[in-house]
Simulated scan of single mutants.
Amino acid sequence: MAARGSRTPQRTRTEAERARLYAARAAWHAKILRRRRRDTVVAAVVGSIIVAGAIVSQAVHAQVTAPEPTPSRTSAPLDSPSPGSSPSAEPTPTGSVTPTQTPSE
């Protein structure tokens, strides 16, 4: 009878195979994590570049295609009198306008 704690060659091989498979699974899992992290970083960088490009594109487009201001027609300036007319102290009436009274309450 074998002593307690002694291992048979088959049992040793089985344990070695289990350890090898465990190490392979651990390495595969670490590889997957690195790939996911790399993919996330690449996606963040590319997304940031796209957003920055869109903002710059809109700013350039807004500056290039900005409408030119068109001068609006204005009547004679209010502060300066027209040439040839003299300022009068009293306003001149333009017709006979009688004020209307509003009913008082």
Score class of each variant (00 low, 15 high):
residue 1 M to T: 03
residue 1 M to S: 04
residue 1 M to K: 01
residue 2 A to M: 07
residue 2 A to D: 09
residue 2 A to K: 12
residue 2 A to C: 01
residue 4 R to W: 08
residue 4 R to A: 12
residue 4 R to Q: 06
residue 5 G to I: 03
residue 5 G to C: 03
residue 5 G to N: 09
residue 5 G to H: 01
residue 6 S to D: 10
residue 6 S to Q: 13
residue 7 R to N: 07
residue 7 R to E: 14
residue 8 T to I: 02
residue 9 P to R: 08
residue 9 P to V: 08
residue 9 P to W: 02
residue 10 Q to I: 11
residue 11 R to Y: 07
residue 12 T to N: 05
residue 12 T to R: 08
residue 13 R to W: 02
residue 13 R to N: 02
residue 14 T to D: 10
residue 14 T to A: 09
residue 15 E to Y: 06
residue 15 E to T: 02
residue 15 E to V: 04
residue 16 A to G: 00
residue 16 A to I: 01
residue 18 R to L: 05
residue 19 A to Y: 05
residue 21 L to F: 05
residue 23 A to E: 15
residue 24 A to K: 14
residue 24 A to D: 10
residue 27 A to E: 15
residue 27 A to I: 02
residue 28 W to I: 01
residue 28 W to D: 11
residue 30 A to R: 15
residue 32 I to H: 00
residue 32 I to L: 07
residue 33 L to W: 04
residue 33 L to C: 11
residue 34 R to A: 15
residue 34 R to E: 13
residue 35 R to I: 01
residue 35 R to S: 11
residue 36 R to F: 06
residue 36 R to N: 15
residue 37 R to I: 03
residue 37 R to F: 06
residue 37 R to M: 07
residue 38 R to I: 00
residue 39 D to V: 00
residue 40 T to K: 11
residue 40 T to D: 14
residue 40 T to G: 13
residue 40 T to R: 15
residue 43 A to T: 13
residue 44 A to R: 13
residue 44 A to H: 13
residue 44 A to S: 14
residue 47 G to V: 04
residue 47 G to F: 05
residue 47 G to Q: 09
residue 47 G to C: 09
residue 47 G to E: 07
residue 48 S to T: 14
residue 48 S to D: 14
residue 50 I to S: 11
residue 51 V to F: 11
residue 51 V to H: 00
residue 52 A to K: 07
residue 52 A to V: 14
residue 52 A to Q: 10
residue 53 G to A: 12
residue 53 G to T: 04
residue 55 I to P: 00
residue 56 V to E: 02
residue 57 S to Y: 14
residue 58 Q to K: 07
residue 58 Q to M: 14
residue 60 V to S: 02
residue 60 V to E: 04
residue 61 H to G: 04
residue 62 A to Q: 15
residue 62 A to N: 15
residue 62 A to P: 00
residue 62 A to L: 11
residue 63 Q to A: 14
residue 64 V to L: 13
residue 64 V to K: 08
residue 65 T to R: 08
residue 66 A to H: 12
residue 67 P to W: 05
residue 69 P to V: 06
residue 71 P to I: 00
residue 71 P to A: 09
residue 72 S to H: 01
residue 72 S to W: 04
residue 72 S to V: 14
residue 73 R to C: 02
residue 73 R to G: 00
residue 74 T to W: 02
residue 77 P to G: 12
residue 78 L to R: 14
residue 78 L to T: 13
residue 79 D to M: 10
residue 80 S to V: 11
residue 81 P to W: 01
residue 83 P to I: 03
residue 83 P to M: 02
residue 83 P to S: 10
residue 83 P to Y: 00
residue 83 P to Q: 04
residue 84 G to V: 06
residue 85 S to M: 11
residue 86 S to V: 09
residue 86 S to A: 14
residue 86 S to Y: 03
residue 87 P to L: 12
residue 88 S to D: 09
residue 88 S to R: 15
residue 89 A to N: 09
residue 89 A to C: 06
residue 90 E to A: 07
residue 90 E to K: 03
residue 90 E to W: 04
residue 91 P to Y: 05
residue 91 P to W: 03
residue 92 T to R: 13
residue 93 P to F: 04
residue 93 P to A: 10
residue 93 P to G: 01
residue 93 P to D: 05
residue 95 G to N: 08
residue 95 G to A: 15
residue 95 G to M: 04
residue 96 S to K: 13
residue 96 S to M: 10
residue 97 V to E: 08
residue 98 T to Q: 13
residue 98 T to I: 05
residue 98 T to S: 12
residue 100 T to M: 00
residue 100 T to P: 05
residue 102 T to K: 08
residue 102 T to I: 09
residue 103 P to L: 08
residue 104 S to G: 07
residue 105 E to H: 01
